[in-house]
């Protein structure tokens, strides 16, 4: 069955096309493009992707305005029904602001915008989104963000670690994130938010293709082998 994904575009998204290209390259089917003002999502989606960028100019807080947009009410409802949601970079910030993932993303501890390829470890390969990796696998993905410093209170961090909900961890201090957390899952494992950009590492011409396994693993599981 053809893979049916949606990529949401907010005003200020700038990785939506990259996300759509990555999904099409790996799945063979172009995703449906959805606008932030759309109050309804297409039916029978296998995956919803929230891309990176600077939605609504990062007004108020990164992701705060996008979290209130009409499409996000539909995304929250779909996530509640178990539709997988992937949020990358600004998409991760939107997911935390919308309350679909715990914690928040603060200004990088070093204050500088960080734009480079960083080492990561796959902490949990039991989720839909990480099934394409080996547990503990060391990978490299690009990051490009100013506000990627993951924060959650001590009880939340303990819960995330204890429940295996840290999907990816930085191999070095990139932005001051607590526990060097780079990506977290919701309690059902169906919503993943991550600051690194897997969609920018799909083919060797990108300088690395370690992001491909994220899409390949998820798509393989969703369309059913």
């Amino acid at each position: 069955m053809a893979f049916r994904a949606a990529v949401v575009t907010f005003p200020g998204s700038n990785c939506d096309r990259d996300m759509a290209v990555a999904l099409e390259q790996v799945s063979g089917t172009a995703p449906i493009r959805v606008w932030h003002g759309d109050a309804a999502l297409p039916e029978r989606l296998d995956l919803i992707a929230l891309p990176g960028g600077f939605s609504y100019g990062d007004y108020l807080r990164c992701g705060a305005m996008a979290a209130q947009s009409p499409v996000m009410r539909a995304v929250a409802a779909a996530a509640g029904r178990g539709v997988p949601v992937l949020g990358v970079c600004n998409g991760f910030q939107v997911l935390t602001e919308a309350g679909l993932l715990p914690g928040a993303l603060l200004r990088n501890a070093g204050l500088a915008f960080v734009c480079r390829t960083v080492p990561l470890t796959v902490e949990n390969n039991q989720s839909l989104f990480t099934a394409g990796y080996q547990a503990g696998e060391a990978i490299r993905l690009p990051v490009a963000h100013h506000d990627g410093n993951y924060f959650a209170d001590a009880a939340t961090l303990e819960r995330l670690e204890g429940e295996g909900r840290v999907a990816f961890r930085y191999g070095e201090d990139v932005n001051g994130s607590q526990g060097r957390i780079a990506g977290v899952l919701n309690d059902a494992g169906t919503v993943l938010g991550m600051m690194p950009h897997p969609e920018r590492a799909i083919e060797p011409a990108h300088g690395g293709s370690d992001g491909r396994a994220l899409f390949a693993g998820a798509i393989g599981a969703l369309v059913g082998a």
């Binding site: 209130q68 602001e97 715990p102 914690g103 928040a104 924060f151 959650a152 209170d153």
Partner: peptide
């Protein structure tokens, strides 16, 4: 709901 993020 909007003006403050009570997580932080």
């Amino acid at each position: 709901q909007l003006l403050a993020n009570q997580v932080i």
